[in-house]
């Protein structure tokens, strides 16, 4: 996307749009909204653009639904292929709505993959699934791992090929919420984070740019070798890891699988195989550094 001059980006977005490829998915994004252009310029400069005349999986448009309303209570609407899946949001949430909308496109339509609500990272060939149970803090941990050299596959969903059972990268900016925005700023001063959108449905939300190394490897699948259920707990000093049984892991991860009901028995067997190939753990942590040290040991790297 570096190929587009920054001052030409808004014009192109307003016209035929730009086609960004994130792993196997190509999204055409169209919008006249300056927040969308600014967010894409900040977070997607290292992404490959797809042929604007080629195939796109999703045609996405963000716009102001009622022009008159602009002067009174400005809003933003998300449409995919002309469908409007969400109520409009305040205009200040335009950029988060783009990212949420793209997530929705995948989780609602890509049922030839098994889709688990989880972060996925990889190091030394070890793919790790971090399911997004409530209170897990998966995005914070995932962001920290990514900033310490782990490859990001996704902060939001594990995309598993039903035949090969490989983890398919869908590398996108990491969504940070509320206190975790400041936590990650303190953790890595070099982190590039979008301006926070206040008072969204999820509180304050900002997005973190993904290091180029992860983007460059977005066509390289990984093998799941560990499933870790993280839990942020302020009293977990030192961090505590405990093995989880395969059966409980299967049920817990199935509960976090978007299309488990839809895929039925196929999902049951695919998840079973993924669990079978993985070491399964609960990890309670208070300090990111301790959690990262644990993950580094998991991937067979010396503790330094």
């Amino acid at each position: 996307m570096n190929a587009i001059e920054p001052d030409r980006l808004p014009g192109q977005l307003a016209g035929s749009g730009i086609c960004i490829r994130t792993g196997p998915f190509v999204s055409r994004i169209q919008s006249r909204l300056s927040a969308v252009a600014a967010g894409l310029a900040l977070l997607y400069p290292d992404y490959p653009l797809a042929d604007p005349d080629g195939f796109t999986d999703f045609q996405v448009r963000l716009y102001t639904p009622n022009p008159l309303r602009r002067w009174w209570r400005p809003q933003v609407q998300f449409a995919m292929d002309g469908r409007i899946p969400f109520k409009p949001l305040p205009l200040s949430q335009a950029y988060p709505l783009l990212e949420w909308g793209l997530n929705w496109c995948i989780t609602s339509h890509m049922h030839h993959y098994l889709l688990i609500h989880s972060a996925v990272v990889e190091r030394n060939g070890l793919g790790v699934i971090l399911p997004g149970e409530p209170g897990a803090g998966k995005s914070t941990l995932c962001a920290a791992l990514m900033l310490r050299g782990w490859r990001l596959l996704s902060d939001e969903m594990a995309v598993i090929d039903l035949d090969s059972l490989e983890l398919i990268p869908v590398v996108r900016p990491v969504s940070l919420k509320n206190a975790s925005i400041e936590v990650i700023r303190r953790f890595a001063s070099e982190a590039v984070i979008s301006p926070p959108a206040l008072d969204t449905l999820k509180g304050t939300v900002a997005h973190l740019r993904v290091p180029r190394a992860s983007i460059e490897r977005m066509d390289e699948p990984a093998r799941a070798g560990a499933i870790v259920f993280p839990r942020y707990r302020s009293d977990a000093v030192p961090a505590q890891a405990a093995p989880e049984t395969p059966g409980r892991t299967l049920l817990r991860i199935a509960q976090n699988t978007f299309n488990y009901s839809l895929l039925g028995e196929r999902a049951f067997h695919a998840l079973t195989a993924v669990v079978q190939a993985s070491r399964c753990h609960d990890l309670a942590y208070a300090e990111l550094e301790e959690a990262i040290a644990w993950f580094d040991r998991l991937s067979g790297e010396a503790d330094g």
């Binding site: 049984t245 395969p246 059966g247 409980r248 299967l250 049920l251 049951f268 079973t272």
Partner: peptide, 9 residues
């Protein structure tokens, strides 16, 4: 069925 011995899914 998936049988892990101590637990069965």
């Amino acid at each position: 069925w998936v049988d892990w011995g101590g637990e069965v899914a």
